[in-house]
Design a binder for these strands. Structure first.
Length: 196
DNA sequence: TTCAGGATGTACT
DNA sequence: GTACATCCTGAAC
């Protein structure tokens, strides 16, 4: 890797800043002797204190949301719609519920393994449609990267699942409204979705 | 290229 | 029982 692993201090900051700064960073998952590496292209921020779209809105504590209160630099993984996983990076201080959802990436290393994880076929055997929509959604990223609820609570400063920075010119970052949270009233309009 | 509908299980009411 | 930070397929355009 040309750049250094992100430390806990990186995650221990304002969630919107972390969400922006994660763009362009590499996510590495070491699994079964292989290294799967992707470059982050899209994120969304979720901040429990003020955000009705956040699982831990208003200080809500349940078995599921407990991880959102963990120390910064922790992985929060949950199951959605009964069959897909979503990976988040916990931010801000311990006891504060906030995280960044990983929404889209592009493959850097291990693309064939990711294609097999997702479609059971090599990259070269995918249809044009599958190739175009390879890693552009949170459920797709987790399937390709072999990330499940078993990774919930994992320390992102360890050796299994971690990130390397990073840094993009501000002009390359786009901010817009989040998607898939139509129920969240005024929070629907928060410009907390970031992409390259 | 867009669209509707279904799959599927856990958390929470 | 209901909703859910989603994705895939197949049909219509």
């Amino acid at each position: 890797m040309p750049v250094e692993k992100l430390t806990r201090a990186f995650y221990d900051r304002d969630t919107l800043e972390v969400a922006r700064d994660l763009l362009g960073c590499h996510l590495i998952h070491r699994v079964a002797g292989e290294e799967l590496v992707v470059r982050i292209t899209e994120t969304e921020a979720y901040i429990g204190a003020v955000d009705k779209a956040c699982h831990a809105y208003g200080g809500r504590r349940t078995a599921r949301t407990e991880t959102l209160y963990a120390r910064p630099g922790t992985a929060y993984v949950y199951l959605i719609y009964g069959m897909y996983h979503c990976l988040n990076f916990v931010t801000e201080g311990e006891g504060t519920a906030a995280a960044v959802l990983l929404r889209g990436v592009e493959a850097v290393e291990g693309a064939d393994r990711m294609a097999r994880n997702r479609f059971g076929r090599d990259l070269s055997q995918l249809t044009a449609y599958q190739r175009k929509n390879f890693l552009n959604g949170p459920g797709k990223v987790c399937k390709a990267m072999a990330i499940t609820r078993a990774h919930n609570g994992l320390d992102l400063t360890g050796e299994t699942l971690f990130l390397c920075g990073g840094g993009l010119p501000a002009g390359e970052i786009h901010a817009g409204k989040r998607i898939g949270i139509d129920y969240a009233e005024e929070a629907v309009d928060f410009p907390w979705r970031f992409s390259i």
